[in-house]
Amino acid sequence: MSEESTAYDASRIVVLEGLDAVRKRPGMYVGSVGQRGLHLLVFEAAGRALEEVLGGTAGRVEITLTADGGVRVADDGAGLPVEHAGHTGHGHPGDGPSLEQWLTVLGCGVRPVNRRSLSSGRSGVGLAVVNALSDRLTAEVRRDGARWVLEYEQGVAVAAPTRTGPAAGSGTAITFRPDAGIFETLEFSFDALAERFRELAFLNRDLDITLADDRDPAAPRAVRFRYPGGLRDHIAEQGSPLHPDVIAFEREYPGMEGTVEVALRWCDSPEERVASYANSLPTAGGTHELGFRDGLAAALTAHARERQLLAPSDPDLTPAQLGAGLTAVVSVKLDRPEFEGCMREWLGNTPVRACVAEAVREHLAAWLRADPARATAVLTRISTATRR
């Protein structure tokens, strides 16, 4: 091989900028050009609107899978400001970025990682990536009595923002159709999207989300997700309870720089169903789940000894013995979450374990003392399952 053929210097480097970079290397931004990446576009488009609801500037979000294979995400917020002829500002003070900036500037509007963020660094690529990876995107804004429309093709504006007439109310709607030249499939899974939006709703009690599917005109469907009681409402939906009460609480711990929310109930089934989340993201485990199991074992062991359901010579109950019939959700929201593992699905914050364990032990112990009969039923259930 000649020296000329192997020569490499700065002149050969191709620098990709802006939305061109996203279209050239989509996997770097959405992780996959399969269905997982396709769904991430929906979550990114919805994420901005959902955070408006959490911030108190919107009340509800509606996501619709449209008949032409696209997705529409609409909110009833104030409406993002639109730059247009004769106006280059951002609208009212405190409005933040304009709609055009959201759609064309990478990372625009992505919030810092903290307990109030829905992305927490594991997604959060922004609306500009949705625009870049869409064959066509239309943005509609209702604001200050006017309706504005912006249209893009493959991330490039088709025309200047157009005022199309008066509008009642306010809000922003983003309608996009993923680019068939980029994604391997354009088939959205209603069930997979519904499961994630359901999670977000019970993890964040202020959210009001509707997911609709208009792809089959003969069988349209829609479901609304709203859990004013948070995790308690979600656990209450689970069937065959061993006891009617849902044991639920929420507590802030400065020591872990965040909050813990837990809801649990034992059901008349052999399976364990424990789900854990950190900053509204599902986790495979971590210090929050370990703390939950530590607190569970400590409270049940102490009560069993107090009620003489364990002999003095019997060993303490272990977390591994307590799973039969247990249905629970453990959610922590941290200002500085630390995710570990190749998929970043394991929470590593060390102080979280002790804080969650203490909270679970104290609240579960209070419930056990308040109703000894139900407590005995739970311990008998655990003891029976352990002997099998």
Rank of each mutant, 00 (worst) to 15 (best):
A212F: 05
L193I: 07
A218K: 15
A180S: 12
D208T: 07
G165K: 02
L231A: 12
L186D: 05
S170A: 14
T210S: 12
A192F: 09
A219W: 06
D191H: 14
I209Y: 02
G181N: 06
T185W: 14
S189N: 09
L207S: 00
F202C: 11
F202K: 01
D233K: 06
D208H: 11
E195G: 04
E187W: 02
D206Q: 14
I209P: 07
T210I: 11
G181H: 08
G229Q: 13
A236L: 13
I209G: 09
G230H: 04
E199K: 08
L203E: 12
P166H: 12
P228E: 00
F202M: 08
L211T: 09
T175A: 12
P166N: 08
A218Q: 15
G165F: 07
R205L: 11
E184V: 11
A218R: 15
A168Y: 11
P220A: 06
D213S: 03
S170P: 06
D233E: 14
F176R: 02
R177M: 01
R196N: 13
E187N: 09
I182E: 11
R215C: 03
A222S: 15
Y227T: 11
F225A: 11
G169P: 05
D191N: 12
A173L: 06
D214G: 10
D216H: 04
I182L: 05
L207Q: 02
D214R: 10
G171C: 10
L211H: 02
A201F: 01
R198Q: 14
A222D: 09
R177A: 00
I235N: 07
L186W: 11
G229N: 09
R224F: 01
A236T: 03
D191P: 07
T172W: 06
A222H: 02
A222Q: 12
T210E: 12
G165M: 05
G171R: 00
P228K: 01
F197K: 02
D206H: 13
A180H: 13
I209L: 07
E195P: 00
A173V: 09
A212G: 05
E195R: 15
I174Q: 00
A168V: 07
D233Q: 06
A167L: 07
R196W: 07
A167H: 10
E199V: 00
